[in-house]
Simulated scan of single mutants.
Amino acid sequence: MENKDKNLYRLDELSDYKIASNYSDVRGWKIVDADNRTIGKIDNLWVNKDMQRVVYLDVNVDKGLIDDSRNEVHDAIASENGREFIYKDGDSHIIIPIGSVSINKDTKTVMANSIGYNTFRNTSRYNTQHNFDRNYERRVMKSYYPENEPGVNYDSDDDTFYNRREFDNH
């Protein structure tokens, strides 16, 4: 589905883009939470083309984390119409803002510094066949950073939405 307003692309969709030489290509690396519990593996990187930078890590969630939350109804995150959701088969990916992690080049591990295992377990996932939209981004950001409410405007345009510490790639 082509969308002329689409601003986020997987890095592997952009043949003319590559990772800058001073950054690690973390695709395929393990990601852990602050307590070193496995969240999953980095599957891809989401790039904001207008800003010409990576804004999200695309994580294929570890089976253990999925099993911990399978068929649970999570009332912490509601869909836009106010109803609760249950994960569907294939919903095995989450996005993590690039500024929310640190990278250990020696161990090829990415660490989510301030987001705990239970938050990841309860965060809405998406299916790579359907990608995600801004509403999904808002739900994820509210899940990871509930303390930012109500002061953060998650409804803002791209420049404002991605111009905060959660998207700073150090």
Results as ranks from 00 to 15, higher is better:
76 A>F: 05
37 R>H: 14
43 D>Q: 01
25 D>H: 05
30 K>W: 04
67 D>T: 08
62 D>E: 15
35 D>P: 07
52 Q>L: 04
73 V>S: 05
28 G>K: 09
74 H>L: 11
24 S>Q: 14
50 D>I: 14
38 T>V: 15
71 N>L: 11
70 R>G: 02
77 I>D: 07
63 K>P: 01
25 D>V: 09
62 D>N: 15
39 I>D: 07
71 N>F: 13
75 D>F: 04
75 D>P: 04
65 L>I: 06
65 L>K: 05
28 G>L: 08
75 D>R: 03
48 N>Q: 13
79 S>E: 14
33 D>N: 11
41 K>C: 02
61 V>Y: 04
65 L>M: 13
59 V>A: 03
79 S>G: 07
68 D>H: 02
74 H>Y: 13
59 V>L: 10
29 W>V: 02
34 A>L: 04
57 L>M: 08
38 T>H: 07
43 D>R: 04
71 N>V: 05
28 G>P: 07
73 V>I: 06
71 N>Y: 15
43 D>Y: 10
57 L>C: 01
61 V>P: 03
46 W>T: 11
78 A>M: 05
31 I>N: 00
46 W>C: 14
27 R>S: 12
42 I>Q: 05
63 K>T: 06
55 V>F: 00
56 Y>T: 09
56 Y>D: 09
76 A>L: 07
49 K>Y: 06
35 D>N: 15
45 L>P: 14
63 K>I: 09
74 H>D: 12
41 K>W: 00
69 S>L: 09
46 W>E: 05
68 D>F: 07
51 M>A: 13
77 I>R: 05
35 D>M: 13
42 I>D: 07
36 N>L: 12
70 R>W: 10
58 D>A: 08
42 I>V: 15
67 D>P: 06
33 D>S: 01
76 A>G: 10
73 V>N: 02
50 D>C: 11
49 K>C: 11
33 D>W: 00
78 A>N: 02
71 N>P: 05
67 D>E: 13
52 Q>R: 05
27 R>G: 15
52 Q>C: 08
33 D>L: 00
77 I>A: 10
39 I>M: 11
35 D>A: 15
24 S>T: 12
47 V>M: 09
71 N>D: 13
68 D>A: 09
69 S>T: 13
48 N>L: 03
43 D>L: 04
35 D>I: 10
30 K>E: 12
46 W>N: 11
62 D>F: 08
54 V>R: 13
36 N>A: 10
53 R>L: 11
43 D>V: 02
27 R>K: 15
59 V>K: 04
52 Q>T: 06
65 L>F: 03
70 R>E: 14
50 D>P: 08
74 H>W: 09
46 W>Q: 05
58 D>K: 10
70 R>K: 12
43 D>I: 01
51 M>F: 09
78 A>W: 00
63 K>S: 08
25 D>I: 08
25 D>T: 06
49 K>M: 14
45 L>K: 15
57 L>W: 05
45 L>R: 08
78 A>H: 04
55 V>Q: 00
27 R>A: 13
30 K>T: 15
43 D>K: 06
62 D>W: 03
73 V>Q: 03
77 I>T: 13
73 V>R: 12
73 V>H: 03
39 I>A: 12
35 D>F: 14
35 D>W: 13
25 D>Q: 04
70 R>S: 11
27 R>L: 11
38 T>Y: 10
64 G>L: 08
36 N>M: 10
54 V>P: 09
36 N>V: 06
38 T>E: 15
76 A>V: 03
44 N>C: 01
41 K>Q: 10
73 V>W: 03
38 T>P: 12
79 S>Y: 06
